[in-house]
Nucleic acid binder design. Structure first.
Lengths: 117, 117
DNA sequence: TATAATACATCGTTATACAATGTATTATAT
DNA sequence: ATATAATACATTGTATAACGATGTATTATA
């Protein structure tokens, strides 16, 4: 019975789940840039960072294509870093173009959100 | 020369234009509900309302499918209103389900946006 | 010795904004 | 008078991007 309550508590209806996904399309690039501005990350690490810092749950099928896209657009740069053991890590950094775009995005979203009430 | 400056001033790069579109996918249902909460509208009117109240430019190919979707989900109801002249207008109203979902969405986005800085 | 966690990546599906197009009526400008 | 714009509805095809599923490889844990 406890489980059912717990399930219902966190369950969203079809509409809200879908809305969350669509909203993410807009907010995700912003949060990725913000996270990388604070601290360079590799992809797998970024997934955890987005969860802990922004409560945003993202899968690998989302994050890797996004990082590749942001690279292509020139907002990020990367550097492979060999590990003493295990798979090498691909670290991402925000570029100057990335910073400029981030500021523009932030300004944009702040203006927009003033209109919600 | 003046025109060029003016053009550049308002021009966004490919990435930002695209981002705006994606962000809209998330914010649009929220703004539509908010607009209809304030005042019932017909589709064509809503397009103008979104522009003037939220600075959000939306085409008919966006708004009509969206309204149909929100109807299907039970967030809106509609009523045809004959005009003394011209095409009848399809007025949309927010339902109780719509109000509940709107509040949930608002709460969600406010929490999320606190994390941008 | 199997399973989970770490770390990279790709592919097919799905949702949704948008341009283009269509129909019909009324107002306005030439 | 007549073309054009504005009003008002709607649909269709295309593009973008999140997500689930799947794949490879390494290391840690049960």
């Amino acid at each position: 019975m406890y489980y059912i309550f717990n399930y219902l508590r966190f369950m969203k209806n079809e509409f809200l789940r879908n809305w969350d996904t669509q909203l993410k399309k807009g907010l995700l690039p912003l949060f990725v840039l913000q996270a990388l501005k604070k601290k360079e990350c590799y992809g797998y690490e970024l997934i955890q960072e987005l969860k802990s810092s922004f409560g945003m749950e993202v899968t690998e099928g989302t994050i890797y294509p996004l990082l590749i896209r942001l690279m292509k657009e020139g907002l990020l740069v990367h550097k492979w870093v060999e590990q003493s053991s295990g798979i090498p890590r691909k670290y991402y950094f925000i570029s100057e173009t990335g910073e400029i775009n981030f500021n523009e995005m932030k300004k944009n979203i702040e203006e927009t959100l003033l209109k919600v009430n």
